[in-house]
Design a protein around this nucleic acid. Structure first.
Length: 503
RNA sequence: CGGGGCGUAGCUCAGCUUGGAUUAGAGCGCUUGGUUCGGGACCAAGAGGUCGGAGGUUCAAAUCCUCUCGCCCCGACCA
């Protein structure tokens, strides 16, 4: 355990892989492009799930589950979606193997499926095929359903969490009687995502509209939250789509309104995936290891008792257990989703304290408590915050009786400090550009988010992408009204959009 | 899918050019015992590898050849 982590400044993508590996988040599996999410990584995902799930429930959504397999013909019913996903679909063609003595197994050619099944890259088709039977009256609407599941997109090039062939996510699929209501839902979910990203992940995000070139195939438009990683590249962190009547028409879903008239319902869909775990790593972690925002930390506090003699071990561990109990008994707080604080006591005697300090720093535990004979003698302990590493920032001589309250205070302080730091980083790496020369220069150096005018055409967007590798990340909601000239073509523009190189 | 790099112990790698005396090695990690213990301890003794896989050349292959699989980087692609 605990070797060197490549410095961010030396090799950012190696640094990312080192963090993921050494913090025990995930590893590559023997299946190309598919990862094994290890307990510590999965625990973070579970925390994300619980926080998001509560937010979905609080906004009236319910969970359900739809099949992994989708008849191939379903995909074809919505043409734009078929086009968008055809190239990355895994296909099931047979339903049986046969064993060959001494040679293992082979696909039984007799067992060919009449209709091939694709493995869901997303579930709009099977869900809207099901909704046809569920929706008859305006009284059946709105239908507000979410599912937590895995999906498969056969990616050429994969990176742990950020882009894998199989990943975990939630996908919401709603049906509404009116266009206005569906559009409101699309916005409402975007707001849920923004709140989740900023308040739970401590990850500042831009919210806005995707350009036509970047939207979800099958959507009328796509809204997104977009974050900046520490290498100044953009990460699409969540998307919410207004689907219009595209799927209700494709799957012939109709309802009778109050006047007895048959109408196609209006749809939305929205998703957020395990990619967010990668985003979390790349937003907060440092050269020492993982940094997890306290609200999503699987372990909030680690207590390291310090001892040499058996009686010291006894005494410090007793005190550690007492403190852990006191922390666990803190009143339920929506701030950590009404869950008890999790506390780990590291009483292993095969490692020295210094080793343990480093190991828990690599794993990103927000608060460390050091508890040795000297502290015990004055009924105190030492506290250290993960985002302020080093000996200097330790808080010495904190009375044990006050420790639980102090720790909760530190967790909250750390959460906001992480958010502020990330926000400042984004602000420091965001600039406006007005000329094409300036754009080409600044997209490479210094890089980051470039606010620029754009003539709203697909051709210009593609040209800029081809020449600079920068894409339009979003057309932000929050911006000052300003007319100008497209940075490439000079044609009139009614507002700036954000360009960046993206993951 | 194209270009490049790399696959030898759990991890990082040496050995390969010039095939054979290396009985396949080192450091870290792991096991056992002892001394240690407030920022990655030390000593000793151990366990652990069909050299990514399959063919081929040869008296002899980790080493040479062919094919194949995987990983990393760059490109193309990417809701």
């Amino acid at each position: 355990m605990a070797e060197k982590i490549t410095k961010r400044a030396d090799d950012y993508s190696q640094w990312y892989l080192d963090i993921v590996q050494q913090a025990g988040l995930a590893e590559n599996s023997d299946v190309r492009g598919c990862m094994v999410i290890k307990p510590h990584g999965y625990a973070i995902w579970e925390k994300m799930q619980r926080a998001l799930d509560r937010m979905f429930k609080d906004t009236g959504h319910v969970n359900a589950y739809f099949p992994l397999f989708i008849p191939k013909s379903f995909l074809a019913k919505e043409e734009e979606m078929a086009e968008g996903f055809a190239k990355e679909c895994a296909v099931v063609t047979h339903y049986r193997l046969k064993t060959i003595p001494g040679k293992g197994v082979q696909v039984d050619p007799e067992a060919k499926l009449e209709e091939e099944l694709i493995i869901r890259p997303t579930s709009e088709t099977i869900i809207w095929n099901t909704y046809r039977n569920w929706i008859q009256s305006y009284r059946d609407l709105p239908l507000l359903i979410n599912q937590w599941c895995n999906v498969v997109r056969w990616e050429m090039r994969t990176r742990l969490f950020l882009r894998t062939a199989e990943f975990l996510w939630q996908e919401g699929h709603t049906a509404h009687a009116t266009q206005a209501e569906a559009e409101e839902e699309t916005r409402k979910i975007l707001d849920v995502y923004r709140t989740f990203a900023e308040e739970w992940m401590a990850m500042p995000v831009l919210t806005g509209l995707k350009s036509a070139g970047q939207k979800f195939p099958g959507a009328v438009y796509t809204l997104c939250i977009e974050a900046m990683m520490q290498d100044k590249r953009a990460l699409q962190a969540g998307t919410s789509h207004f689907l219009g009547q595209n799927f209700s028409k494709a799957f012939d879903v109709k309802f009778q309104d109050q006047n007895g008239k048959l109408e196609h319902p209006w749809a939305t869909s929205w998703g957020l995936s395990t990619r967010m775990v990668g985003g979390l790593v790349m937003t907060h972690s440092d050269d020492q290891g993982l940094v997890v925002p306290p609200r999503l930390a699987p372990i909030h506090v680690v207590i390291v008792p310090i001892f040499r003699k058996p009686e010291e071990k006894q005494a410090t561990c007793d005190a550690a257990r007492k403190l852990a109990q006191a922390l666990g008994a803190m009143p339920p707080d929506p701030w950590y989703n009404y869950e008890p604080l999790t506390v780990k006591i590291d009483d292993r005697d095969q490692h020295q304290p210094g080793f343990k300090f480093n190991e828990w720093e690599v794993k990103g535990v927000p608060i460390r408590v050091e508890l040795g004979p000297k502290d015990l003698a004055q009924n105190a302990c030492v506290l250290a915050r993960r985002d302020l590493p080093g000996k200097e920032s330790k808080m010495m001589g904190v009375p044990l009786a006050e420790a639980p309250t102090r720790i909760v205070g530190l967790l909250k302080a750390m959460q906001s400090a992480l958010f502020e730091r990330a926000r400042k980083f984004r602000a420091d790496n965001t600039l406006s550009v007005d000329t094409w020369d300036d754009f080409k220069k600044k997209i490479d150096e210094p890089g980051g988010f470039l606010w620029a005018h754009w003539d709203r055409t697909r051709e210009t967007e593609d040209k800029i992408a081809a020449e600079t590798k920068a894409t339009i990340r979003c057309i932000p909601y929050e911006q000052t009204k300003e007319t100008g000239k497209c940075v490439l073509t000079g044609k009139p523009s009614e507002g700036r959009v954000v360009f960046a190189k993206a993951y």
